[in-house]
């Protein structure tokens, strides 16, 4: 009976079913298996969850599949680096600057990208992100392709809060919770209803008198700003900033996180981010071929969900 309930649950919620044991193993047996310290791992997962959540918002609500969402995130890290090099490390100030840079990048690239739809949009977002990647790689002051260490970690009102990874993790979790709550309110607001409608039925949306572009652009820019905030925290966590932060592989990982957790529900992105980060770490500690193992697991999850959704649609 219990076994039947469990397999049913696993089929309905493959990501959660997988994440629970992985999380527990990583928590208790982590040290033995060579997995990163719990606090570092938690902070990393929460940071990527912030970026993934902002992507899930524009993807799920607005239908904007961006394959360049790592770009504003990386730019946020580079803003942190630049300000740190100039001796400025107040966290709130750094975050404000990073948000503006991330939002501006998304707004300017969005003005062009959002005039396209579907595959063309995906390609253009990828192209812009790659442009940013190469731009950062070419700057020798930032160490070129190798990257550079962060001179000074950000402080909160002078307090070296981010010196410990546990504190960073707590801050990231707090920001994540605030973002989740905020986005759930935006989704139900008049703006949120309009954004969703623009994606669900564009013909009816315009026939009612709405122009789609302003809504998409606002959401897209906001998501870019949020992603940059995640970048600030990531820079503080890794203490090292490299162009790889903006690489299209990172953008792809963010998409995987969103899809893994389930596009339909907002919490999905958080689930997917935690699942991917923890899986990567655990598998990395277990085998040299962790990439292969990860790929197979992702495949299994997606297939399981596909099968469940098919049967769910047939059954009344």
């Amino acid at each position: 009976m219990l076994l039947h309930r469990l397999t049913d649950f696993a089929r309905r919620e493959p990501t959660t079913a997988l994440l629970a044991p992985v999380f527990i193993i990583a928590l208790f047996a982590g040290q033995v298996l060579g997995v990163s310290a719990p606090a570092t791992l938690l902070a990393r997962a929460a940071i990527f969850a912030i970026a993934a959540l902002s992507l899930s918002f524009i993807l799920g609500q607005g239908g904007m599949v961006s394959l360049g969402h790592a770009a504003p995130m990386g730019l946020g890290a580079y803003v942190t680096l630049s300000l740190s090099m100039l001796g400025f490390k107040d966290l709130l100030g750094v975050m404000a600057c990073a948000f503006i840079v991330g939002a501006l990048f998304s707004a300017l690239t969005g003005l062009i990208a959002l005039r396209t739809r579907g595959v063309y949009f995906i390609m253009i977002t990828l192209a812009f992100a790659q442009m940013a990647y190469y731009a950062m790689s070419s700057l020798s002051v930032f160490g070129g392709t190798d990257g550079i260490a962060l001179p000074l970690r950000s402080t909160l009102f002078g307090w070296p809060l981010l010196r410990s990874d546990s504190a960073t993790a707590l801050l990231a979790l707090g920001l994540l919770a605030a973002l989740f709550w905020g986005l759930s309110r935006v989704t139900r607001s008049r703006f949120g209803m309009a954004l969703r409608a623009s994606h669900l039925n564009e013909a009816r949306f315009t026939a009612l008198g709405f122009e789609p572009l302003p809504y998409r652009l606002m959401a897209y820019s906001f998501a870019g700003g949020i992603s940059a905030l995640a970048g600030v925290l990531l820079a503080n966590l890794t203490d090292y900033i490299a162009p790889s932060f903006l690489d299209w592989h990172r953008s792809g990982e963010l998409i995987v996180m969103v899809v893994l957790g389930g596009v339909a529900r907002p919490f999905g992105a958080i689930l997917g981010a935690f699942a991917l980060i923890y899986l990567e770490s655990l598998l990395g500690g277990l085998t040299q071929y962790w990439n292969l193992a990860l790929g197979l697991i992702l495949l299994a999850i997606v297939l399981a969900r596909g099968r469940f959704e098919r049967t769910a649609r047939i059954a009344p």
């Binding site: 935006v186 607001s189 703006f191 949120g192 309009a194 009612l208 008198g209 809504y215």
Partner: peptide, 18 residues
């Protein structure tokens, strides 16, 4: 309500539930 919003309300409302 969305149709009414198009004509009679500003959609720059991000917090209050529609």
């Amino acid at each position: 309500a969305l149709a009414a919003q198009a004509r009679f309300a500003s959609s720059l409302s991000f917090w209050r539930a529609a």
